[in-house]
Design a protein around this nucleic acid. Structure first.
Lengths: 254, 254
DNA sequence: ACTAGGCTTTGATCCAGATCGTGGTAAAGG
DNA sequence: CCTTTACCACGATCTGGATCAAAGCCTAGT
């Protein structure tokens, strides 16, 4: 049985009254018309008719910090469009070694590969809100909407490029360079969501950063301390403030 | 001016007479009907009509060993479907440090992201033959053929997964594990092309392997020597023969 | 206020893999 | 034939980052 809109409205308590963005359908659950991150996400590729249809497939989802969104090797029955918060994506080896393969922030799509089984785990770092789509339904919708498929393809290509860049960082850069690349890269990503700022929020722990960069927590901590000692940044609660973006960029560029 | 089929036949010397796979169009240049790697490549997603049209867009291309196929930061005007040979994909840092991000073998698609500028260089390791497509024309064709787009999207997802696996290997595995993962992974990829065999061809140099695994050539050499000493493999000309695939798989699985 | 527990920082020591140096082998070319 | 060039192996030494150890520092709970 499919829950009706009032059940859902009662459950998540954040439904606006009215009609969807194309002014023809009643609201189901999600309010794309007022979504601030839409241009950043897959939905940015859609005209208002298509957006409206996709809106019909979406359900709001919330995750508490540390809550699992996907689990490695387990079946994927939904994919998500992150609208707020941050999450970590990681793979585990049987002996416990961990590699963080990425961090998701608003605008990012989780489940890009549409695979039946997840090759990594994802869990929330902060409270996360996302649009949830049934994987099968989303996949079928995709087959009817080449524009959306094209958008996802382009996002996959972009992710692939970032993954290759990460290989360069992990494989060939020094510890300090890795940390600088991470901070500068994350600043660029946050800039799309919340505008350009020299303050980089770091919702993940030092251990997460270490596991992302192929380092240990101590090495990450020392690298950040050294950058602070060298007056290239200051550590602030839950983040860093970049004091000399230009010099940091120079380290990234070699 | 567009070269006619006889010019092209004269140039590449490998045209079969006849009509295309759908029996309706004369041969232009490429002979998909007799392509052995078709099911491995993007073309596997197409019905015979679509295959025929794509065939019309394709031109044979040959590359000598060391010849560039793409160059980092330069414009991409064509994409390729590799039909024979092997190539390396790599990124360079300004100071000369190199990270190999992958190796292409028959069935692999070069230019998956369809980006205007290449983020990496690609050059041939052995003589390479490939089907060449004008990037713009291919991209336009893609917009008319959702099945092909879907196939490319799935290949991009697969590549992304491989790239993440490579992050785990480079970021969290020991030197010997990295070499074993590389050999076992490459064996699996060759198996699709030339059937299951315990002999793994290594068309790339030890330096290429080192730059793929985030190691030095000496460490790669020592790891392979140790594996040979431990009777897990034997070194043969231009490759290795795996003596104990099961024990090697066990190292990969942790 | 005090305490407990999680996270981070800092210091001391260690080691896997880098670096440096030497020599060997095979193919290409004269 | 010898020489050159490229690749590979391996021993000696060095070092960047890991590991081990301990001490701050928040925040939540009592």
């Amino acid at each position: 049985m499919i829950p009706n809109r009032h059940d859902l409205a009662f459950r998540n308590g954040e439904l606006a009254e009215g009609v969807c963005v194309c002014n023809r359908h009643p609201h189901a659950n999600v309010d794309c018309a007022h979504c601030t991150i839409r241009p950043l996400s897959i939905c940015g590729a859609l005209d208002s008719d298509e957006l409206c249809e996709l809106e019909g497939l979406a359900r709001h989802a919330h995750f508490a910090p540390r809550q699992a969104i996907f689990s490695q090797d387990e079946a994927v029955d939904a994919v998500f469009n992150v609208t707020a918060g941050a999450a970590r994506l990681y793979r585990l080896l049987p002996d416990g070694r961990r590699q963080v393969v990425g961090f998701a922030i608003p605008g990012d799509f989780l489940g890009l590969a549409l695979a039946e089984k997840s090759v990594y785990s994802v869990d929330a770092l902060t409270p996360v809100t996302a649009c949830r789509f049934n994987r099968e339904a989303f996949s079928a919708f995709l087959d009817q909407r080449p524009a959306l498929l094209r958008r996802l393809y382009e996002m996959a290509g972009h992710e692939l490029s970032l993954a290759q860049e990460q290989m360069v960082i992990i494989g060939r850069r020094t510890a300090e360079e890795r940390v600088v690349c991470f901070l500068v890269g994350l600043r660029k990503r946050w800039a799309r969501v919340s505008g350009n700022s020299v303050t980089v929020p770091l919702p993940m722990t030092r251990q997460d950063i270490a596991d992302f960069l192929g380092l240990t927590i101590e090495t990450v901590s020392r690298a950040i301390s050294k950058l602070a000692r060298d007056k290239l940044l200051v550590v602030v609660p839950d983040g860093v403030r970049l004091l000399e973006p230009a010099r940091l960029e120079a380290i990234v560029d070699g």
